[in-house]
Write a protein that binds this DNA or RNA. Sequence first.
DNA 1: GAAATAAAAGAGTAAAAACTCTTTTATTTT
DNA 2: AAAATAAAAGAGTTTTTACTCTTTTATTTC
Lengths: 143, 143
Amino acid sequence: MVSKTCEYAIRAMLFIAQKSKSDIKVGVKHIAKAIDSPEPFIAKILQELSRKGLLQSAKGPTGGFFLDNAGLKQNLADIVVAVDGDKLFTGCGLGLKSCSEKKPCPIHDEFVAVRRQIKTMMKSATLDDYNTSLELGEKYLKR
Amino acid sequence: MVSKTCEYAIRAMLFIAQKSKSDIKVGVKHIAKAIDSPEPFIAKILQELSRKGLLQSAKGPTGGFFLDNAGLKQNLADIVVAVDGDKLFTGCGLGLKSCSEKKPCPIHDEFVAVRRQIKTMMKSATLDDYNTSLELGEKYLKR
DNA sequence: GAAATAAAAGAGTAAAAACTCTTTTATTTT
DNA sequence: AAAATAAAAGAGTTTTTACTCTTTTATTTC
């Protein structure tokens, strides 16, 4: 559904969101451990997202990645688009380039519905909104 | 959502289903042209599916690939599982190995709903069911 | 200002997915 | 039986995705 890179990105962003609530910046090592991902790989992903402005970073001791208030208002769809592009939300279910309302593939209408549901779901909650259930230990980012 | 291999497989199977309605066997060359796919690649995919029993084949002149009556009753989910496995229907949205009702990822419940919708959609119609709209030229397999 | 910490940047490697080519085997038509 | 047709099989290549390593640069603490 989304790339592995994107899965890591979402999990990392959710973890950073938690820490940012208490104004804590987190280093790559800490993040990698928390979401169980290869350290240099998640570093690269987050640098890319930081360049794109989806999160902030600070170098040096006590530095690390963090989210400002605007960042905490982002939703999962924002991350998915930044990492994978919008093919999940716009592509044809059978890979046809010019599949459209006018020239639909056999499953066009059904896929439009599925995609809409996915989009709605990914836009319905901000990173901040996930914090509570994560803090309560009702939801997990690891294993 | 599904692999490119799987997209080709579905499109080829839908095309073969059409031809099989009039008891016509189709060669790889013909199929590749009809669905706009690399010829040796779709050949390989169909050989694999034929080995798994999802369609039939005959060698020699007038030979080619075709579907028997049971084959025409298959749905898209059958093809997806044969090609990609069942990860689309069972995997975690964030790639967690032990994501479950007991230890859910933050988007577990929403993803269960999305996956159910996809599964329902892919099981709701047989290959045969798509024939009419394709014959009428309302739906397309190419471009 | 020296040492330590942590991200930035970029090159490099490994594995998987997508795609190709060649040879063989079976079947049918003439 | 010979020629032609078409799938079977398997090895090989290319591209993309996933992941690693090394060096540099910025910041902070002591």
